[in-house]
Amino acid sequence: MLRFAKHARYVLSENPVTAGAFLFFTLLILLAVFGPWIAPHDPLATNASNALQAPTWAHPFGTDHLGRDVFSRVIVATRLDLGIAVSAVALSFVIGSALGCSAGFWGGWTDRIVGRVSDTIMAFPLFVLAMGVVAALGNSVENIIYATAVINLPFYARVARNETSLRREAGFVLAARISGGSDARILATQVFPNILPPMMVQISLNMGWAILNAAGLSFIGLGVRPPAAEWGIMVAEGATYIVSGEWWLALFPGAALMLAVFCFNLMGDGLRDLVDPSRRT
C-alpha cells in the first residue's frame, strides 16, 4: 500500500495534467454536494421581464429565455449530471463485472453466451441503441441511466473477463482452491479485488462518455425533463440561440460539460499510469 501511495505521488508529480484533473474532480464533487447552497439564485425561478440578459455581475453567465440565472443552473446541474454518470457507470460496472468474472472464471458456455451478448450489443451503433432504449421506455432520468448502462456493459464484461481468465490459474487462486474455498468465494475474495485496478481506468473514461451520452440524448429531445437543470439540455436549448447572438446560453453549460468530461478522461489516463506501472516510461 505504501508503495502504491509512493507511486501515486510519483505519477502525480511527474504528470501535472493528471494532478490538475484530480483537483478539478474534487471541485466537481464539492459543487455536486453543495451546489444548491452555493448557487446565488434559485435555478428554477423564472422572471420573464429579465429574459435573455447578457452576462453581468448579477448574472455572471447571463439569463435564459425565461429569465433564469444560467450561473446557478450550471452549478446546480453538476449534481444531476454526475448523478447520471455515477449511477450509469456503477450499474454497468456491477453487472458487467459480475458477468465478465463468471465468464472468465468458468469459461465454456457461460463465456460463450456472455461473449455473444456483448458482441451483439457492441455491434449496434451505441448511441442509436441508447436512443432506442430511451425512446422505448420514455424519457426520465432512470431510463437515461439504464440506456447508458446498457451500452457500457460490454466494455466491463470484456475487461473483467480478460483479467479474470488471466488470473484463473494464478498461484493465489490455486492456493485458495486447494484450501477448499468455493468458486463464488474465490471469485469474490481473490479474483475480484485483483481486477479492480484495470476496471478503475474504464470507470473513469466511461464517466465522461456517460455525461456526453446523456447530453446527446438531450440534444435530440430524449433527455431529462424540464425544468431540471442539466448541462446537455442547456446546451441543446442554448444552441438555438447562438445565431440570434445569445451565445452565453450554450457556451457556459457547454464549457462545464466539456471540462467535466475532460477531467474524467484525463483522470482515466492518470489512473492508467497508476495501475499499470509497466506503461511508466
Partner: peptide, 22 residues
C-alpha cells in the same frame, strides 16, 4: 507530450453537436 494529450482529450470531451454548431 502533455500538450498532445490535453489536445486530443479535449477533442473527445466535446459534445459533437456543440462542436458542429460552434
Amino acid at each position: 507530450d502533455h500538450m498532445c494529450r490535453v489536445l486530443v482529450t479535449a477533442g473527445v470531451s466535446l459534445p459533437t453537436f456543440f462542436t458542429g454548431l460552434f
